[in-house]
């Protein structure tokens, strides 16, 4: 297969059109960016997994018998599960963009990512980072508190015997609790069991099971800390 002297033509074009190679720095920055995104996805994914564990371990599983499968559906940390999925896809996508990222099958890359985030996320949870993160989110973000955290929604069903809120006043047999909608409830705690030996004080966030009597009166069977 004999052809024109293409290499010579190309060289003349390079010289004639003054073509210069793109700066090495651009490729270096691109490479660093891809690996940064991959690493960040792994770290953030691990934090998210610790939040998922926090959500699962802190869930009130003793109520499963009362509410059944509906309890799981209502209290799963969907936002964090969704975020975990998004960061897994992001990590996999950008890993594939790295120089040799294409050599491994998708399932292996995703599997490696998930196993790594599960291991690191579990470590983060067991050293207490998951709980600290969740409490921080609850404190700083009203959005997180009201929408993202299903547990609050679950515990805001007084007609179902579930009430939660901040203690605003403490009496001998009755306390006042402000729920997530800002409503003040009078809660009769006479005879109610104190599930995890909560020391009641003003501004303490608690969860209460019992029965609704009227629009602002609730009789507690049991109360527990948030």
């Amino acid at each position: 297969m004999k052809n024109k002297n293409i290499s010579q033509i190309v060289l003349e074009r390079i010289k004639g059109e003054k073509i210069k190679p793109i700066s090495r720095r651009i490729f270096y920055i691109k490479k660093v960016l891809f690996w940064t995104v991959v690493t960040l996805s792994l770290i953030i994914g691990s934090f998210i997994f610790s939040l998922i564990l926090s959500g699962l371990f802190n869930n009130d599983w003793d109520l499963y018998d009362r509410f059944g499968f509906n309890f799981i559906m209502k209290t799963l940390p969907y936002f964090w599960l969704g975020s975990f999925l998004i960061f897994t896809i992001l990590g996999e996508y950008y890993y594939r963009k790295t120089l040799l990222g294409h050599r491994l099958r998708y399932v292996i890359v995703i599997g490696f990512y998930m196993i790594s985030t599960i291991i690191f996320g579990s470590i983060f949870y067991f050293v207490g980072i998951g709980d600290v993160l969740e409490k921080s989110f609850i404190d700083i973000s009203p959005v997180y508190r009201n929408i993202i955290l299903n547990r609050i929604n679950f515990w805001s069903q007084p007609e179902e015997g579930l009430l939660s809120g901040i203690v605003t006043k403490i009496g001998n047999e009755e306390i006042e609790v402000k729920d997530s909608n800002g409503l003040i409830w009078s809660v009769n705690i006479n005879g109610a069991s104190n599930r995890n030996q909560v020391n009641l004080f003003v501004d303490e966030k608690i969860k209460i099971t019992g029965d609704i009597i009227d629009d602002s009166l609730f009789v507690a069977d049991e109360f527990r800390s948030w």
């Binding site: 290499s7 190309v10 073509i19 190679p21 793109i22 090495r24 651009i26």
Partner: peptide, 10 residues
């Protein structure tokens, strides 16, 4: 070849 030369640093 032009593209190769242009991206040679990559």
């Amino acid at each position: 070849f032009i593209k190769t030369y242009y991206n040679l640093n990559g």
